[in-house]
């Protein structure tokens, strides 16, 4: 009996678009900027509803980040939209100086993150963005798992005063979380309680992990699954309490192993509660063209990879 079900698949970027539209209606300080990807980011609804508060920047992401920083002076809450690659690596210094170090209330909203961007290939499949952004002092890093959660997160970050990186993706994925959920920044969500292994997953890997725990249960393994939608600040209490119980860990993310969620959790546990840890992540490699499903299998980010790593982590614990 599967533990979670869904009625439809939806893309997380559409959750962002829906959240932005709702925000626009209730908060007139919210403004949106886009670098020639309005349709891809699903910002066209906001653009149509609030043309005076929408800024088409053109293909000039550095300028977009600076303009967003400037808009905060006067009380605006800017949401920038472009692909994750152009939201981070391309404009790292602009974010670092004009937004993070300057403490500006900019929401950097990034779509098409990771391998599931698919056929466009490695130039666009950024797998380093979480690491880049979590290193910046004061930057909040959020990677929600489905449409409903992305929508809720988009709305919630407008009420938080400070820079935020919101990461989401291109493909339709199971939409299984509550449509009326209240999103709490930094508050991990336990999806399944278990005693043999803790699985910490973020973004698209949360559904893969749900598939994995069903398979593990068939094999008689009780896996705890926690959705880490906020990578920074990390819900340290949730992580430590879970690992105290299970004593071994799998982390799962659509990102490089270096610098990702797994790094954050390993660092935390090494200080407080050392335990065997296995990483489901891209291992020091660029992606390539292919369908999202093919890529997730080839690069070891599938549910069966989570199952295998869970079994390995438990074996190491029992050595």
């Amino acid at each position: 009996m599967p533990k979670f079900s869904f009625t439809e698949k939806k893309d997380t970027r559409s959750g962002f678009g829906a959240g932005l539209s709702e925000l626009g209606k209730k908060n007139d300080q919210v403004v949106a900027l886009c670098a020639d990807l309005t349709g891809s980011l699903k910002m066209d609804v906001f653009q149509k509803e609030h043309p005076d508060r929408f800024f088409q920047i053109g293909i000039a992401e550095a300028n977009m980040m600076g303009i967003a920083a400037g808009l905060t002076i006067g009380g605006k809450i800017p949401f920038t939209g472009t692909f994750a690659n152009f939201s981070t690596g391309r404009v790292y210094d602009q974010i670092r100086q004009s937004i993070a170090y300057s403490g500006k209330n900019v929401k950097i909203c990034a779509s098409h993150a990771g391998l599931t961007l698919g056929e466009d290939g490695a130039t666009h499949q950024i797998l380093e963005d979480i690491g880049l952004m979590k290193m910046l002092p004061g930057m909040v890093v959020i990677n929600p798992c489905d449409y409903n959660q992305t929508k809720a997160a988009t709305i919630a970050i407008a009420d938080y005063n400070g820079p935020v990186y919101l990461r989401f993706g291109r493909p339709a994925v199971p939409n299984f979380t509550d449509s009326n959920q209240k999103f709490e920044i930094g508050k991990a969500i336990t999806l399944n309680e278990g005693k043999d292994v803790s699985i910490f997953a973020t973004g698209h890997l949360v559904w893969k992990a749900i598939e994995a725990i069903d398979e593990l249960e068939k094999q008689g393994i009780s896996a705890e699954l926690i959705n880490i939608h906020t990578i920074k600040p990390l819900d340290e209490t949730a992580v430590i309490n879970s690992v105290k119980k299970t004593k071994c860990v799998v982390t799962a993310e659509e990102h490089q192993q270096n610098g990702g969620l797994g790094d954050s959790i390993a660092q935390l546990l090494s200080r407080h509660n050392p335990a065997p840890i296995e990483f489901v992540a891209v291992n020091d490699s660029f992606g390539e063209s292919g369908t999202p499903d093919q890529l997730m299998v080839k690069y070891g980010l599938d549910s069966k990879d989570i199952v295998a790593k869970a079994i390995k982590a438990i074996a190491r614990k029992n050595q």
Partner: peptide
């Protein structure tokens, strides 16, 4: 970076 920032604040003033 400063010209972009100045433009942002100029837009904020207009709004």
């Amino acid at each position: 970076q400063g010209m972009s920032v100045a433009i942002g604040t100029a837009l904020s003033k207009k709004l």
